[in-house]
Design a protein around this nucleic acid. Sequence first.
DNA 1: ATGATCTGTCATGAG
DNA 2: GCCTCATGACAGATC
Length: 672
Amino acid sequence: MLSLKKYLTEGLLQFTILLSLIGVRVDVDTYLTSQLPPLREIILGPSSAYTQTQFHNLRNTLDGYGIHPKSIDLDNYFTARRLLSQVRALDRFQVPTTEVNAWLVHRDPEGSVSGSQPSSGLALESSSGLQDVTGPDNGVRESETEQGFSEDLEDLGAVAPPVSGDLTKEFPADISSLTEAVPSESEPPGLQNNLLSPLLTGTESPFDLEQQWQDLMSIMEMQAMEVNTSSEILYNAPPGDPLSTNYSLAPNTPINQNVSLHQASLGGCSQDFSLFSPEVESLPVASSSTLLPLVPSNSTTLNSTFSSTNLAGLFFPPQLNGTANDTAGPELPDPLGGLLDEAMLDEISLMDLAIEEGFNSVQASQLEEEFDSDSGLSLDSSHSPSSLSSSEGSSSSSSSSSSSSSSSSASSSASSSFSEEGAVGYSSDSETLDLEEAEGAVGYQPEYSKFCRMSYQDPSQLSCLPYLEHVGHNHTYNMAPSALDSADLPPPSSLKKGSKEKQADFLDKQMSRDEHRARAMKIPFTNDKIINLPVEEFNELLSKYQLSEAQLSLIRDIRRRGKNKMAAQNCRKRKLDTILNLERDVEDLQRDKARLLREKVEFLRSLRQMKQKVQSLYQEVFGRLRDENGRPYSPSQYALQYAGDGSVLLIPRTLADQQARRQERKPKDRRK
DNA sequence: ATGATCTGTCATGAG
DNA sequence: GCCTCATGACAGATC
């Protein structure tokens, strides 16, 4: 059997290679597509497989594409298809560009507010600390910082370049804050851009914090294992706490450059808000938040992090002493900052894909090899012969096939193939003669279908049956049974006597127990007829012969067992098909899940962009404001704030700062 | 030799 | 009641 498989496998491969050499393209997709209907029919079973056995539909018309549902070829087939679909899915998935805006901002130690919120778990942002005191080489790295500020960084492990005050000046609006607790004494004074500090102080998400947090949790839960592992590595997170790692950095924690970069990106997300963005303002939540008045009682949880009601609190350090420029603002949690972290989201998305689509490197390499093969066949053809040999489809559609489908147990096959006698296309006269001689029973006919099937399965059998050699090449096994009815075949004339005995033995082995019994009982017709004839014809057939009670009993048993055998095969096929369908459903659901996750990532990214836009607009508006003397307002002394009617007010910084503090307390109280 | 799997068979119930 | 089919369970065959 194995040797025959190998034989056919090699033959198939060689044939494919030949096709390739002569320019005939073997298209994998076409191959699979064209294979699918018959294969699916095999798997699902032709209509007859799920219905009553149709006597007039006995022949298997699967055109040789039959693959036994339990055959390894079927697994290979679906594996290949799944891999193909996964590869194609890669086209659809656009890996988001990772944009990391790294800003190292130091907080004034007086920012006690920040110290009071380390447990928030969210990104703590420096409100005023724009001074870069990460190292003495700040100036040297300024240029690259600026460059890194605008360019997309794909490598999250990249070192975050320090940011100098000049640089911030250059990019006051687009601040991706890094929350770091840096000792104040290390901060060089006078390196502050107050305009930036409110951005760093906190941003208000247009979405509900709780919702965002739940969304994040849902994402993280789905990717708990993988995200946990990777995030720990990537973000230097404490084990088991990827969220806090992503969103916060404990105060007084020395700056880890890798972490700093990531934190910077988080901050960048968090600082964006929709103050001036029409699109964002149109959002219900955003508009509601922006309309919040200065009254402290109206401040919400979001205000602490995205205080649109108090723009001063956002854009200015909450703590303004005499040298406000030197102070760092409180670190406020930013719910969206972490959510919008592209690096995290990308990773989630990618890992989700990797997990849910089950596309690992091994499979990819295997698939690649398959596609790289000269044959052009992506399917593992090494098993194809077995699939041909075990034509499950025949069993499902015809009674004859049911007996023959069990190739390995051909010796125990219950019935000869009534329909396949002709379907096989085998027309060995000698065979008929030998069988009749061996049987000694009138009307008993050999099972040519089994010959054919065995010829597929065992090359040795094929070789010992030279007259069967053609079976492997022609496909006349689908011919009408009547055309090749063995009973009508003339005796062979060219068969050698030496092979006759082998054939007889072989046929004898191929006979099922019931066939042996029938022969022993001298039943005058084939088991196929016994099993597959409609009851009326069956009774009519019985009436034509004078049969003993024992013979009649045996015939009934043969019929019952034969039908039950087919029923069992169909039943098992259905069971297997159900499993396969469920498997496909699971895969589909996993793909949907991955797609939804990708969409969510895109939405969050879009939100971040809008917030950045608003941020820049704020900078622009504030920068154009002039006092009565024509001088610009100091960001440390004034801030913009939304009024309840939607207008924007310029209010003193102290007032804004007070409000910001109130808004910070609210969420804390809520948590209590 | 042994366990897993395949396959045929029986018993039973339903249509 | 008979026939057929579906299916769980079992056992032998096969891998």
